[in-house]
């Protein structure tokens, strides 16, 4: 069932999810996306550029963060526009991994265009890792 635009109120939480990332997730994303930057799988390389260790691809965090919105909307084709700012790295420990939490709230409702703007709060270790994370969703 497609969500009904007129039933949405700004601030409503429409979806929540958390994602358990491991080093395996990063290798999988590297292969699927073609981004083989070794800071995403080698601690020594990450440390050589001043990072504490391997971090998730920003595009992986961006990619998974919109999935609760896709499931809420019912069809990935409903996401018309999606933007984020990368503000903090998600470090993925070799044994403990990392957990990324996503809360999706209604940011704005456009009753003429039949579009909802969904704002995402994406956190790792209690701090937000994406800024201005917004998806515009067609609910026509």
């Amino acid at each position: 069932m497609t969500p009904v635009l007129t039933e949405l109120t700004v601030g409503d939480i429409v979806a929540e999810a958390s994602f358990a990332l491991t080093r395996d997730s990063l290798v999988r994303y590297a292969g699927a996306s073609g981004d083989f930057n070794s800071i995403h799988y080698r601690d020594d390389v990450a440390q050589s550029v001043g990072l504490s260790g391997v971090l998730a691809h920003g595009m992986l965090t961006m990619g998974l963060a919109v999935q609760p919105v896709v499931d809420w909307a019912g069809d990935p084709a409903r996401v018309l526009d999606y933007q984020v700012r990368f503000t903090r790295p998600v470090f993925v420990d070799a044994t403990d991994g990392a957990t990324v939490a996503v809360v999706a709230r209604v940011g704005a409702v456009d009753l003429e265009a039949l579009i909802a703007r969904i704002d995402l709060t994406v956190t790792f270790n209690g701090a937000t890792v994406l800024g201005k994370a917004q998806a515009r969703v067609n609910l026509a």
Binding site: A32, V70, G74
Partner: peptide
């Protein structure tokens, strides 16, 4: 493959 890598579980993907 890309869908699985970004944790997409929607059947349409």
């Amino acid at each position: 493959e890309f869908s699985r890598a970004v944790f997409a579980s929607n059947p349409i993907n």
